[in-house]
């Protein structure tokens, strides 16, 4: 309690009560020393308050167990048949892994030249293994870039994903085509460990 009173006092007293209080003090001692004291004490108090505030803020950040549980995961792609997709959970979020057919890849490439709200070539949304583009595999975060709902797979006007919350349509490459979403579906950090295995994170 004392500290905030003290601060209020310093802010307010200055102007009015200086005549009363401080002049007395000035008379009874070196004015510079008093001002330095007040300033130093105030500064030390502010630093202390900051030191107390930091742990209180920091404690809300992800804790050590949460961070450890969010370590990279390996995903075996072999069980996912052509034209199929799976949803897996990583760091609490859905991740779509879609095994595209040759026709779907072709469709996606054709649309590179279409009017895309968030222009990006299909080739830029796939990853390579040993120099070879693994364009059968689309790996995206399963949260609509509008407000985070989970879009439904194999639906919408572009046979990609359709978000039922606010009507965003994505194509099979996860690019936004129509609706309020501002960006293509985000791609998590991932790499191919072999032709049929990826590591996410």
């Amino acid at each position: 309690m004392a500290r905030w009173e003290f601060r209020i006092r310093r802010g307010k007293k200055r102007k009015r009560d200086v005549a009363d209080h401080s002049t007395n003090a000035m008379q009874s001692g070196d004015p510079n020393r008093r001002d330095f004291l007040l300033l130093a004490t105030g500064a030390a108090g502010v630093v202390a308050a900051g030191g107390v505030a930091w742990p209180l803020i920091s404690q809300m950040s992800p804790d050590a167990s949460t961070i450890a549980a969010g370590a990279p995961v390996e995903v075996d792609l072999a069980p996912i048949g052509e034209g199929k997709a799976i949803t897996l959970k990583w760091r609490g979020k859905p991740i779509f892994v879609r095994h595209r057919t040759a026709k779907e890849i072709e469709d996606a490439r054709k649309d590179d030249s279409a009017a895309l709200p968030d222009k990006q070539a299909d080739a830029a949304r796939v990853r390579a293994f040993e120099g070879k583009a693994q364009d059968k595999w689309i790996v995206v975060y399963g949260n609509c870039t509008h407000l985070g709902c989970v879009p439904v797979g194999f639906s919408g006007e572009y046979n990609g994903w359709y978000c039922p919350c606010h009507g965003s349509h994505y194509d099979n490459s996860g690019r936004i085509r129509k609706g309020p979403a501002p960006r293509n579906l985000d791609i998590p950090e991932f790499a191919f460990l072999s032709a049929s295995k990826i590591r996410i994170g």
């Binding site: 742990p55 920091s58 404690q59 950040s61 804790d63 050590a64 949460t66």
Partner: peptide, 13 residues
Amino acid sequence: EHIMRDVNYGWLM
């Protein structure tokens, strides 16, 4: 124990 071990400054709190 989770507070004491994992939470940032949890031991302090």
